[in-house]
Design a binder for these strands. Structure first.
Lengths: 127, 127
DNA sequence: TGTGCAGGTTACTAAAAAGTGCCTTCTTGT
DNA sequence: ACAAGAAGGCACTTTTTAGTAACCTGCACA
């Protein structure tokens, strides 16, 4: 399991380590819509393997960005939810998204979007 | 050399790839103060190897965040400067820094700082 | 004559991150 | 009797990143 080291160059490096995993942003994006179950997330992330989803969720949990809620049922029921710390990351992701949008337009890069600047605008309007 | 793939999950993933190298943020931080020569950067980044500095600078250049200016002299003189695209990244880095500061305080993590929220405030005041 | 400096390159190695495939537990449905 | 679904675990391989060490050019200086 990836641990945050006690020493970083600076806060930005730390942030990159926290949200820099292969699937982290995508998971946060999905959980942003609301609470989700394991297999629900799995279906929402085409191409992710069971192992990677578990691993990334565990890391997000360890870093305090998501909560894992286990219900004592059979068959098991586990739900994932973003924490307050995770919600507070939104403005940061928004800025990254804004720059990324500008950058990719400038350089003619296309991509499968998840978050767009527009999504954030909508969210702001609703909130 | 690391190429940006034609396809990304989303803009945020792309941004992480662009600034996510081991020394990228530190280099940008240093170049933020103004133009620097190769060995000047090397001295400013204790622990970096020649190879890593060259490599990270090449990637930053390829991604359009810094410019490499080579003077035709002997001994060689090469200067590095952030581009407009690189300068536009500042608000993003500021947001990352802000969240990181809050996060590390919340979780009792200490670090060798480069950028701090304070630095950005000062910059804003001056500009 | 050879040492140093500026700004690299190349080949090789080690470590970290991601991906693959198969195993498990319990229960409901056919 | 057997499959499927939920939520993983474990061992192994591959790919990606980072680090080490040696080498190069061309001049200036002792």
């Amino acid at each position: 399991m990836k641990m945050l080291k006690p020493e970083y160059h600076c806060a930005i490096d730390m942030v990159i380590e926290i949200i820099g995993g292969k699937w982290k942003v995508l998971i946060l994006w999905n959980l942003n819509e609301g609470v989700k179950r394991f297999n629900e997330l799995k279906r929402a992330l085409p191409g992710i393997t069971q192992k990677m989803l578990t691993q990334q969720l565990r890391e997000l949990e360890e870093h305090g960005l998501v909560n894992r809620i286990e219900y004592d049922q059979v068959p098991p029921r586990v739900e994932y939810v973003t924490t307050d710390l995770g919600k507070k990351l939104q403005p940061t992701l928004f800025e990254m998204c804004k720059w990324g949008d500008m950058y990719s337009e400038d350089r003619g890069i296309t991509m499968n979007r998840c978050w767009t600047t527009y999504d954030f605008m909508e969210k702001k309007k609703d909130g």
